[in-house]
């Protein structure tokens, strides 16, 4: 499907599951664009190109046909789209928004999307973030940039239209993906997930 020359930081890791309770998997190479601009200015172009004008409220998302628009900040949205459709979408957005104050940046490779599912998925996540991830507080469609483990990430509850079959998605910067993956496995241990060891064992040299 995707270009075999590409490699995810989670290359070599495979889905960890403890059955119904919790499953962790990667949504590799999901396309991600940062779209900056006033929501009113960009909505028509969004509707035309993604099928949704974007969420009406802060910290929410809107999805249609596998394309999702996530609210990240008052003038920032993320577009999460099927793998390898992002370059074309970025180009289309730029041309459709010509003359409108906006900014499109491809951050597909910047962030890795890790999906979590299962009845205990929220309890697994709660071990790593001070944000309230209880399903009642963080409902389907919600988005939150927050602290996760010792890093920062974006949490998302993808709705059906996103075509992503995870209950939660964590976007984490590529260089921390392996760290978080293993931390999630550790957090899921209580529910039967098997521990994984992060990259390590490098030889360090600090002194001359």
């Amino acid at each position: 499907m995707s270009d075999a020359r590409r490699r995810s930081p989670l290359h070599g890791r495979s889905e960890i599951s403890s059955g119904e309770a919790a499953t962790v998997r990667e949504h590799a190479f999901l396309g991600k664009l940062v779209l900056r601009g006033a929501p009113g200015d960009i909505a028509p172009a969004l509707r035309e190109l993604t099928g949704t004008a974007g969420p009406e409220d802060a910290c929410r998302s809107a999805s249609s046909n596998g394309r999702s628009v996530l609210w990240i900040g008052p003038d920032e949205h993320w577009l999460v789209v099927p793998a390898e459709t992002e370059i074309e979408l970025a180009r289309d957005l730029d041309s459709r928004l010509a003359g409108v104050r906006h900014h499109v940046v491809d951050v597909t490779d910047y962030h890795v999307a890790i999906g979590l599912s299962g009845t205990k998925a929220w309890e697994v996540l709660a071990k790593l973030t001070p944000f309230d991830v209880h399903p009642k507080a963080f409902a389907v469609g919600a988005v939150a940039g927050t602290v996760i483990g010792r890093g920062q990430g974006v949490l998302w509850r993808p709705a059906e239209g996103s075509a992503l079959d995870s209950d939660y998605i964590v976007f984490i910067r590529s260089s921390m993906a392996d760290y978080l993956w293993c931390l999630l496995a550790e957090a899921g241990r209580q529910f039967g997930m098997t521990p994984e060891t992060p990259i390590g064992g490098e030889t360090w040299r600090l002194a001359r």
Partner: peptide, 10 residues
Amino acid sequence: PYCGERDQAE
């Protein structure tokens, strides 16, 4: 003012 109540850690 944009995201609502959050933990200081953020």
